[in-house]
Design a binder for these strands. Sequence first.
DNA 1: AAAAAAGGTCACGAGGTCAT
DNA 2: ATGACCTCGTGACCTTTTTT
Lengths: 213, 213
Amino acid sequence: MRPIFVSNAKTEMVDAERAAWSMMSFGREQTEVDDRVNSFQMKTESSLDFCHLSSPEHCHISLQHHGPDARQSYGYAYEYQLNNDPVSSSQPIACGIVYPSRPVPHAKPPTHTDPSAVLNIDCRVCGDVATGFHYGVHACEGCKGFFRRTLRLKLAYDPCDLNCRIQKKNRNKCQYCRFQKCLLVGMSHDGKPLERVKLIYLHDNLKAECYVA
Amino acid sequence: MRPIFVSNAKTEMVDAERAAWSMMSFGREQTEVDDRVNSFQMKTESSLDFCHLSSPEHCHISLQHHGPDARQSYGYAYEYQLNNDPVSSSQPIACGIVYPSRPVPHAKPPTHTDPSAVLNIDCRVCGDVATGFHYGVHACEGCKGFFRRTLRLKLAYDPCDLNCRIQKKNRNKCQYCRFQKCLLVGMSHDGKPLERVKLIYLHDNLKAECYVA
DNA sequence: AAAAAAGGTCACGAGGTCAT
DNA sequence: ATGACCTCGTGACCTTTTTT
């Protein structure tokens, strides 16, 4: 767990009015990294723009390379903290994923059927493996389809006040609570819940997509 | 029943922590095979990674091709044994299905209503023809319905300590032992017992999905 | 042109039905 | 009570549209 500092990264605010970012401290959770990632760490070890976040939360970042040898998973997790107070410390925030913004040339593009290409990030609704950023949040194919069907067919489910915990193995047990969870984590048909999402370009082909969870 | 050995297969552990596989011996139950399958047998006639299995059981593997002529069923059953002890012998385990990892283009996938497409797999409870993967195991319509009713109506059966052998022709004779058998082979209301599933890549487009039941 | 996300498809299995 | 048959929600996989 060697803490590093990231700064001077090129950032793109998805919702500039609301968010501003503060100093981040990273804690590496995994020891194995490849050369490119090490160099990324070298280059980014400086200081980020300050930002505010309405509801700071714990944060995980997962790194992934889709290089020529993508079959060896490079995924590993970061934790970092942002401060609402630009000067002082320690309210942890946001959750996201870091991945190359575009694949290395000659690298086989990852496909759905290629197990090595799976994002190392969980579906925010049920915890299954997320296949992408769907309706504003990282979600698995199941929750993506469920949300799409619900809106498209204007489905209404039997109300439930048990606030069921939605997990992969039981996500089909309570449609009402599953849909509530979809809304809770920010799924929206009108595009990304922009005020919660922010992109950080950490390195040439490494991009962080962070959001408040 | 010509026994073959499979090894050096690329494996993907669904639950790497739990399972490790041992030497497998296959016994062909059907004599008619097409060229591709013969070549598969040639190529894979070597030795598998060793593994442990918590509860070894009898095992069936069914091969299936979804080739251009998928309407002719290529399904046939394998029996094989795995050993917990990598060196010596004979505790049979696991049950699975082998199929191409991706369908051949233009091949019509088999459908439910197509009689030729019926899985050549036995119900793990009574040995009748399985109609699918129900409650986590391959089961016939009868045992599927029986298990569903038992849970849904919370039925309790007269205890029996005879450990009755459940077969198609006598499966309705002892409800208690039938339900015990359902549980024994791993039937579960919570969906597939995923932690028990393992994929083995036997050949380019042949994949085995094995589970301990 | 390429990547990502939205949207469509359909085999599959859970659960219901009802003649037996 | 059983089980053959049925309906329908699900989600893996695919195509289309949008974004970069």
